[in-house]
Design a protein around this nucleic acid. Structure first.
Length: 376
RNA sequence: GGGGAGAUACCAAAGUGGCCAACUGGGGCGGACUGUAACUCCGCUGACUUCGUCUUCGUAGGUUCGAAUCCUGCUCUCCCCA
C-alpha cells in the first residue's frame, strides 16, 4: 500500500491524498461504507459503484469468521471474489465486538474468548489468529486486534486497557510480518491508537503505534460514549503525533458534522454504520440537514427526496413515496434511504477534497456544519 | 321460525364487584441510532385548568358504600338448526 499526500489546508489540519492498493486507488479524505457480513446492507455492489461511488468498503473479522466461516471464504478465493467487490476492502479485527458484545466475551492477556451471539459456541480470538483470519478474508487493509474500551472508562481502566492493546499490537505486527497474503496481492496492517479521553494515554499510544512504522494508522475508541468535544480533542492530540505522510483512519465515526470536524483535524479515512442503519430506520442526511422520513409532514410532499442529491434515488423518488415505503416497512424504503445516505456521505468527502485542494475548506466547512446540524 | 354466543378506546383483544382511564398486540404520532447481535430500540396515544379533576367499556334503567364487571328492558352483530 502506498500513500501520497497532495494538499494541506493552510488554516486547518485538513489534507487530501491518495492511497494505492492492489485493488485500486482511494482518494482521501474518504468515507468507507460498512459491509460487516460482506454486504453493505441492502445495497448491490453495482449501486455502490455506480450510484454511490464507493471506493472502498469494510468487512468484519468476527462476523465473517462466524458466518460464512473461513473455509468458505478461502475456497471462494477471499472476500473480493466471494462478494464480487473488486475495489479495496478493509476489515475490522473484532476489536469493536470486544466493546459491542462485551456481555458475550471474556478478556485475558492471551485474547478475547467470545461466546458466539449466533449459537453460543466459544471462540478464542488472539492477536495472532485474528491476523491469520484477516489473511484468509483477504482485505487490502487489515486492522490490529484491540480492546475498544467504553468512552466513560476511568483513567485507571483506560491505562490498563491500553497496555493490553499495545501488547496485542506488537503480537499482531509480529504475526503479520511473518505471514503472507493468500491470494497473490498485498495486504497492510493498521495499528489502532486507544487511550480513551486521556491526553497522555493517547500520546503514548500514538507514539508507540508510530514507532512500528506501518502504512497507516487508526484512531479507535472514539464515539463510544464520551462527549463530542473530547473526541475532537483526542483526534487533535493523536494527529499531532502520528506521521504526516501516512493516512489516518478515524474508526466508526460518524455524523456528517463529525466527519468534517475530523477532516479539519487531519483525518483521512472514515467508516460508520450511520448512513445505512439510520437510513434503514427512515432517517436521511442531506446538505441542508436531516429528515425523519416517518414524519407526517412529508405525507403529501411530492417533491424529490433531495434536490441537491447526487444519486438517482434523489430525483427519482418523492419524499411522500419514501415516507410511505418506510412506514409500510417496505424493503425498498430502506434501500432508497441507504443509497441516498451513502451517496451523500461520499458526496460530502468528495466536496471536502475539492475545497481542500482549492484552499477554501475552512469557510466551506463552517457553512456546512451549520446547515448539517439542521433538522428539516 | 327455533337454539346459542357476543357487543370494551382507531382496530384486534384482555378484564367478569373496589388494585380500571382500563393488560397486550397492531395502527397513529414523536424520538434515538457513530470500527452493525439493529428493516432495531424507546416514549406518548379519552378530555382538561394534568402531583388533580371530569367523562368513558352498545343503550335505557336498576341493585350496591362502590359496576366495564351483577339484574331487567331495548338495539345491533355473529354462529348452528329448520
Amino acid at each position: 500500500m502506498d500513500f501520497k499526500l497532495h494538499n494541506t489546508d493552510d488554516r486547518s489540519g485538513a489534507r487530501t491524498g491518495e492511497i494505492t492498493t492492489d485493488h485500486g486507488k482511494i482518494k482521501t479524505p474518504i468515507f468507507m461504507p460498512v459491509g460487516t457480513l460482506g454486504s453493505v446492507k441492502g445495497i448491490h455492489q453495482h449501486e455502490l459503484k455506480e450510484d454511490i461511488n464507493a471506493e472502498i468498503i469494510l468487512g468484519n473479522t468476527y462476523h465473517l469468521y462466524l458466518r460464512p466461516g473461513l473455509d468458505v471464504l478461502e475456497q471462494a478465493g477471499g472476500l473480493h471474489k466471494f462478494n464480487g467487490w473488486d475495489r479495496p476492502i478493509l476489515t475490522d479485527s473484532g476489536g469493536f465486538q470486544v466493546f459491542s458484545l462485551a456481555e458475550n466475551r471474556k478478556l485475558t492477556e492471551e485474547g478475547a474468548m467470545f461466546r458466539s451471539h449466533i449459537d453460543g459456541s466459544k471462540h478464542m480470538f488472539t492477536p495472532e489468529n485474528v491476523m491469520d483470519t484477516q489473511r484468509s478474508i483477504g482485505a487490502d487493509i487489515i486492522m490490529a486486534f484491540d480492546e475498544c474500551p467504553p468512552g466513560t472508562s476511568s483513567y485507571e481502566y483506560a491505562e490498563k486497557s491500553l497496555g493490553l492493546t499495545q501488547r496485542w499490537l506488537e503480537r499482531c505486527v509480529d504475526r503479520f510480518d511473518n505471514t503472507k497474503g493468500k491470494y497473490g496481492y498485498s495486504q497492510t496492517l493498521f495499528p489502532i491508537v486507544q487511550g480513551c479521553v486521556y491526553k497522555d494515554l493517547r500520546i503514548k499510544a500514538a507514539e508507540h503505534a508510530a514507532s512500528l512504522n506501518r502504512d497507516g494508522y487508526a484512531i479507535g475508541g472514539l464515539a463510544v460514549g464520551e462527549p463530542t468535544p473530547d473526541m475532537y480533542e483526542m483526534i487533535e492530540v493523536v494527529n499531532q503525533v502520528l506521521p504526516e505522510n501516512k493516512p489516518r483512519y478515524l474508526m466508526g465515526v460518524g455524523t456528517p458534522i463529525n466527519i468534517l470536524e475530523a477532516i479539519s483535524r487531519g483525518v483521512d479515512m472514515f467508516d460508520c454504520v450511520m448512513p445505512t442503519r439510520n437510513g434503514r430506520n427512515g432517517m436521511i442526511f442531506t446538505s441542508e440537514g436531516t429528515l425523519n422520513m416517518r414524519n407526517l409532514k412529508w405525507a403529501k410532499d411530492f417533491t424529490p427526496l433531495d434536490t441537491n442529491g447526487t444519486s438517482y434515488v434523489d430525483s427519482f423518488y418523492s419524499k411522500a413515496y419514501v415516507r410511505h415505503l418506510i412506514r409500510s416497512n417496505e424493503l425498498l424504503g430502506a434501500q432508497i434511504c441507504s443509497i441516498h445516505n451513502l451517496a451523500f456521505y461520499l458526496w460530502l468527502v468528495r466536496e471536502a477534497r475539492e475545497k481542500i485542494d482549492e484552499g477554501t475548506f475552512s469557510e466551506w466547512k463552517k457553512i456546512m456544519v451549520e446547515k448539517l446540524g439542521r433538522r428539516l
